[in-house]
Design a protein around this nucleic acid. Structure first.
Lengths: 197, 197
DNA sequence: TATTTGGCTATTGTCGACAATCGAGCGAGT
DNA sequence: ACTCGCTCGATTGTCGACAATAGCCAAATA
């Protein structure tokens, strides 16, 4: 139920600056104001929404500058650590899961379904970060990823989806070598180039 | 009202692993479950609490490894950017405010009031970050700072409080020169040495 | 004895109603 | 014309009651 509202915003159906009235949302979503409030708070913590006491909430935009100068560098710091940490801890089952995600991404790319591609992309990275075994790393990832995703879905023109799939396949292969010197350079290039996801 | 619960946790009155039952909390805080729920969600987004559907929430600990290998590096990335950005935008009134905070910190340090010292420390950094004019930077800071603060208050023994004050005075002076080459090295050293805050 | 099934309790999730607050618009006085 | 204060509508903040769920324990069963 929270998910519904988030996708409404992340997918860009709501424009930045648009007001979010709890009552109206609760009606269109056929629920009460309680869950809506929680969803709004969650989105606020994800930086997609800003709310003012007694005055409501508005959809927040993401500037290119902020993405490139704040979100991406932080993401890089986070993932560099998480990937290095996860290397030793990934099981064969994990690699299989990553392969499955890569496959789903490929399917979505073939169908030009940008939404699904991005979704798979996020899952891929989140799975690795989870395997780092550091709860706070996951926590921070969750608070940053939605913004990058929103930026990509809103302003990102259709890029080289096939190439994106290839990069994740390469990342997976690199992870399987369990060699930091192989994984980290690849990761940095992956994040820097395809800046958003 | 949210603040009350947060300080209960951050200040270490609640042990990691302790269960947080909405009903009990709402009673001890003389409020209803609604605000308590919101507070818990907020704390969850700040990484101080973890909650499981239909099973409640527990206080989360912060491991030394996570602080040093995740939170501090991310904080460094964030502040490096924010300070550089804020340099050009700080007004004399801002410098005056920073001076006031430094003074309050000194008072607290003299009285060995660790809680107040840390509070002033956080304010100092948040003010500069706010002046960077990048909403998302502030957002991320808010989601990271409470954890570092909690770590410091819980496990950090009384350190060189006077020295800490001095470092902030130096930071302020550096900011007033508006020279990145002066500020950034000082900042990096400040964060790295006094690892928490 | 091991296992499953059923109810029971503690706790969170959801709802609708009411209270508090903010800002806009309006009118009176200068 | 301008400012001050007031009322009023829109919206969020708070509350108490009820519904849904997960985990536990005992009883029934093989």
């Amino acid at each position: 139920m929270v998910e519904a509202l988030r996708t409404m915003i992340v997918s860009g159906r709501l424009e930045p600056g648009e007001r979010l009235i709890e009552n109206r949302i609760s009606q269109t979503l056929h629920t009460s104001r309680g869950p809506v409030r929680e969803a709004l708070r969650e989105l606020e913590h994800e930086g997609l929404v800003q709310s003012f006491p007694y005055r409501g909430a508005v959809v927040l935009g993401v500037s290119e500058e902020e993405v490139h100068e704040v979100l991406i560098p932080i993401r890089l710091t986070l993932e560099r650590f998480a990937f290095a940490k996860a290397l030793e801890r990934m099981s064969d089952a994990d690699f299989a899961d990553l392969g499955k995600i890569a496959w789903m991404m490929e399917e979505a790319a073939r169908g030009l379904d940008l939404q699904k591609v991005v979704e798979a992309d996020v899952s891929f990275h989140e799975l690795v970060i989870r395997r780092a075994g550091q709860p706070h790393a996951v926590q921070i990832w969750r608070s940053i990823a939605p913004r990058i995703r929103a930026y990509f879905l809103r302003y990102g023109q259709f890029r080289d989806l096939e190439g994106l799939v290839g990069e994740h396949r390469a990342l997976l292969a690199a992870l399987q070598t369990r060699e930091p010197d192989v994984v980290l350079p690849l990761l940095e290039q992956h994040i820097a180039v395809h800046s958003p996801l």
